[in-house]
Simulated scan of single mutants.
Amino acid sequence: MVSANSADRYLPHTVQQPVKILIVGAFGVGKTTLVGSVSEIRPLRTEETMTEAGAGVDSLAGLPEKRTTTVAMDFGRITLNERLVLYLFGAPGQRRFWNLWEGLAEGAVGVLVLVDTRRLEDSFEVLDQLELRGDTPFIVAVNRFPDTQHYSEQELRQAMDLLPETPIVECDARDRTEAMDALIALVQHATELSRARKVAS
């Protein structure tokens, strides 16, 4: 978690463009970690300790150290430059919380889909949900874990049935620079799509 002093709590008066980003992914892929690693303010988290009630529902395969889960959202903020600030909203991964997505997604310019290739099949329903919810731009970010097996972009694109124009990036959600690069890639993709749509219209 990034600590913040009092000066970090307020945006500079030069900020002209707040941008909302939604971060989604299956259970345990690292959404909370990513928001915490990049946020310049103390992240708002709604984590609860996992209990036996989740046994048989939330698979902990490959996640032996996981003890908590997000039940509403994660929220963070990052100022990219003197005029542009990102507001980050991390959505819960479990299906039973997906009814929260609609509110969190409202006004978002793009979606960062975080995936864990050790449990890639868990991401399929998440991607399906994005397709059902409209034309919000998204990119896929592969979160590298210590025991992650490497796959080529072509293998990943085929496994997730992604369109050729959907970007795939890699990052370590714990690393601020790499997580920032993934977010910047999303903003660039959303900007390019927006320009292309304006030209087409």
Rank of each mutant, 00 (worst) to 15 (best):
R77V: 05
E102K: 12
K66Q: 06
D58H: 02
T136I: 15
R176M: 11
V109Y: 07
G76W: 09
F145L: 15
D74Q: 02
L104F: 01
V113C: 13
S201V: 04
A7P: 05
L63M: 00
M1R: 13
D181V: 03
A185T: 08
V169Q: 03
T191M: 09
P92N: 05
L44Q: 12
L34E: 10
D58P: 00
P137H: 11
P167L: 01
S37L: 00
L112M: 06
P92E: 03
R96T: 06
W98T: 11
G110K: 11
E82Y: 04
A26V: 05
D128V: 09
L60W: 00
S201D: 14
V111G: 05
S123T: 08
V71Y: 06
D122E: 11
R83P: 04
S39C: 10
T177Y: 11
H150W: 08
L44A: 10
V169P: 02
A4T: 14
E82I: 05
F145Q: 08
M50Y: 03
E131H: 13
D122G: 03
T51C: 00
L34A: 01
R9G: 11
R67K: 12
S59V: 02
E192V: 14
T136G: 04
Y87H: 08
Y151V: 06
E52M: 00
D122Q: 06
A196H: 11
A200L: 15
S201Q: 15
I23W: 06
V29H: 00
H189Q: 13
E48C: 03
R83V: 09
L127C: 08
L63A: 00
E131A: 15
M160T: 02
A26M: 03
Q129T: 04
F75Q: 07
A53H: 12
L86T: 05
W101C: 04
A173K: 00
V57P: 06
F145N: 04
S37N: 10
R83M: 08
R95S: 07
E165W: 10
P137K: 12
T49C: 01
D8V: 00
S3Y: 14
G134T: 13
A91R: 04
E131K: 14
I184D: 08
M73F: 14
A190N: 02
D116A: 05
F138W: 13
E131D: 13
K66F: 00
E178G: 04
N143M: 10
T166G: 07
E40F: 01
V126L: 10
V29W: 01
L156G: 08
F27I: 02
R133N: 12
Q129K: 13
V187D: 05
A4S: 15
Q188L: 14
E82C: 09
K198C: 12
V142F: 07
L112V: 07
V15D: 09
T49M: 02
V113H: 06
R67V: 06
A196K: 15
G107E: 03
P137W: 07
L60C: 01
L80Y: 04
V35L: 00
Q129N: 13
V38F: 01
D135L: 12
V85K: 04
L34F: 05
A196E: 14
F124H: 11
L163T: 11
H13Y: 06
S3A: 15
L114C: 01
L22R: 10
T136C: 02
R83C: 09
K20T: 04
R42C: 09
Y10L: 13
T32S: 15
R119D: 09
